[in-house]
Simulated scan of single mutants.
Amino acid sequence: MAAIRSLLFMLVFYGLTVPWVIAALVGAARGDKAMHSVIYAWVRFHRWCARAILGIRVEIEGTIPDGQYLFAAKHQAMFETLDFLNLLDTPAPVLKKELTGIPGWGWLAKRYGGIAVDRSGGAGAMRIMLKRTREVLADGRSVVIFPEGTRVLPGETPPLQAGFAGLYKMVGLPVVPIAIRSGHVWPRNKWVKYPGVVTFRFFEPIPTGLPRAEIEARVHRLINDFELE
């Protein structure tokens, strides 16, 4: 049954994503507000497909704070990369550069405010990422980053990537750690999805100005809260 549901999800969601991307491109020609409206309708559609077709629902633990923050989250599935647009107020996501090469979608991701990072680009790539981040922050938007760098399997707790501490120091914003449990229903690199609950656990903001070792240790511990239970 899970395989049948997953196949139906792929046909419905990905099939209808193509006209949605076209609609967003048309909206972009009219301005960011029109484009954003289409994008938010698309991510709500994604949430609906996950619930109605796959039987996956979302639970929130803790309080989602208002204001401008650096949100640092666990990353186990593609699900949360889209659902953050449902949960937060126009967040600017840090995403791998390869995603911006997807025809149509990649251009929209950059136009929306996505902060592309070339993980093999060294110091030059970091400077470009920080420049783009400053532009986003000037608009009053929050930033979402997956500080471990990539999707991981449930139970895995890799160290944070070096770029996180640099971003924390540069943006000067409190950090909101988010533990996420999603990999059990949306397995990495597998097309079959399973019914269940995706849980977002929001923690209290961590203040600015902490030494690198301390901020990395606190964020790493909190985003892996589910893994350490």
Rank of each mutant, 00 (worst) to 15 (best):
I4C: 12
I4W: 14
R5Q: 15
L7V: 15
F9C: 08
Y14V: 15
L16M: 13
T17S: 15
A24M: 09
G27W: 00
A34P: 02
A34L: 10
Y40A: 00
W42F: 13
W42I: 05
V43D: 09
R44H: 14
H46T: 09
R47I: 02
R47A: 14
W48L: 09
C49N: 12
A50Y: 04
A50V: 11
R51M: 02
L54I: 10
G55I: 08
V58F: 13
E59M: 09
E61C: 10
G62M: 02
G62E: 03
I64G: 08
D66H: 09
G67H: 04
G67W: 05
L70W: 03
L70C: 05
F71M: 14
F71I: 15
F84K: 12
L87K: 04
D89Q: 07
P91R: 13
A92F: 06
A92C: 14
P93N: 01
E98V: 01
L99K: 02
T100Y: 07
G104N: 05
W107F: 14
W107H: 05
K110A: 12
Y112K: 06
D118A: 00
G121S: 05
G121I: 02
G124P: 07
A125N: 09
M126C: 04
M126V: 08
I128A: 09
L130H: 03
K131W: 03
K131T: 09
T133N: 10
T133D: 06
V136Q: 11
A138S: 13
G140F: 08
V143R: 03
V143L: 09
V144D: 06
P147W: 00
G149K: 00
G149T: 01
T150M: 07
R151Q: 14
V152G: 12
P154E: 11
E156R: 04
T157D: 08
L160K: 01
A162R: 11
A162S: 14
G163I: 00
G163M: 07
G166L: 03
L167R: 07
K169P: 03
V171N: 04
P177K: 06
I178K: 00
I178S: 03
I180C: 01
R181L: 05
R181E: 14
V185R: 05
P187C: 03
P187I: 05
Y194H: 15
Y194R: 04
P195V: 15
G196A: 08
V198M: 03
T199H: 10
T199P: 06
R201C: 14
F203C: 00
E204C: 06
E204V: 00
T208I: 15
I215A: 00
A217R: 11
R218C: 00
N224V: 00
N224F: 00
E227G: 08
